[in-house]
Simulated assay, not measured.
Amino acid sequence: MTRPPAEPPAELVRFGTAERWVHRTTSTLMMVAIVTAAFLYLPFLAELVGRRRLLVTVHEWAGIVLPVPLVAGIFFRSLRADLRRLNRFGPQDKGWAWRAMRWGTRAAGAAGKFNAGQKLYAAVIAGATLVMMGTGLVMWFPNLTSLSWRTGSTFVHDWLALIVGVLVIGHIRMAMKDPEARHGMRTGRVSRNWARREHELWADEEEQAAQRQSEERSVDR
């Protein structure tokens, strides 16, 4: 007797436990670094702080341990798979960001698990984090470098911090517009309809994988 084809799942697993915790801890550290930086550099906020040295210490340590969650997460296969996806641009990504800026993400074309905008954001934040850690260390230990190094590091660190702050605010703003994307990051699951609407190529991959698994189980029986 031929079995009927399996129904496609109503929900898809988008993120595992490792990915969600890496995102949560990294975003928490990033926000601590951004907020403390704002209180250190903006005069009207600096006036509200009584223990500036403590604020500097919190800012320094939030920045220096920022990569730790990601380094710990590399030991998990699911996170390594997501990093490979973020690091690879496919044919579907060509021109995606330009179309998204003109017509919106839904009209920009089919996307994989991560669209081109998310890949660009991840690349810029990763690069900026490394540069800011390096310049931050120069500022943290001023006696180990020359004045020209300290001056240049301060200039790069401050302007890069402003750029990162704007990008993170934009990232949060985009997330606030998409409750199901936030639900997916919080629980790890998203509806099949959302996946097909926002990440069609990834939804196809997941449904094909589920179909293959169903067929393999049928053969085993």
Rank of each mutant, 00 (worst) to 15 (best):
L137W: 12
L137G: 10
F15I: 02
A161M: 14
L12A: 04
M31F: 15
P43R: 04
L55G: 06
P179R: 03
L40V: 03
P8L: 00
N115C: 06
R106C: 12
L130R: 01
A209F: 06
P67S: 00
P9Y: 09
L54P: 06
Y41T: 15
E19G: 07
K94A: 11
E206D: 11
S78H: 04
Q213V: 13
V124G: 04
R3V: 13
V58K: 03
V156W: 06
L54K: 05
G63D: 02
R14T: 04
R99A: 11
V22N: 02
T26P: 06
L42D: 08
M132A: 00
F39E: 07
R77N: 10
E198I: 04
W194G: 02
N115G: 05
D204K: 09
F114R: 01
W140R: 14
L120C: 07
P9G: 06
T105H: 08
R24S: 11
E215Q: 10
D158P: 09
F155L: 14
T17H: 12
F75K: 07
R51S: 14
A62G: 11
W98A: 10
M31I: 15
Q208R: 14
W159T: 07
A33H: 08
P8H: 03
A110T: 03
P5V: 05
R52E: 13
W194T: 08
I64N: 00
F76S: 12
P91R: 13
T145Q: 09
R84D: 11
V138Q: 05
E180W: 05
A123S: 08
I125A: 07
L201C: 09
L70I: 10
G109T: 06
L144M: 12
G63R: 00
V71W: 09
L12V: 06
A111G: 02
H199S: 03
F75H: 11
T17P: 14
V138P: 06
R14G: 07
R88D: 12
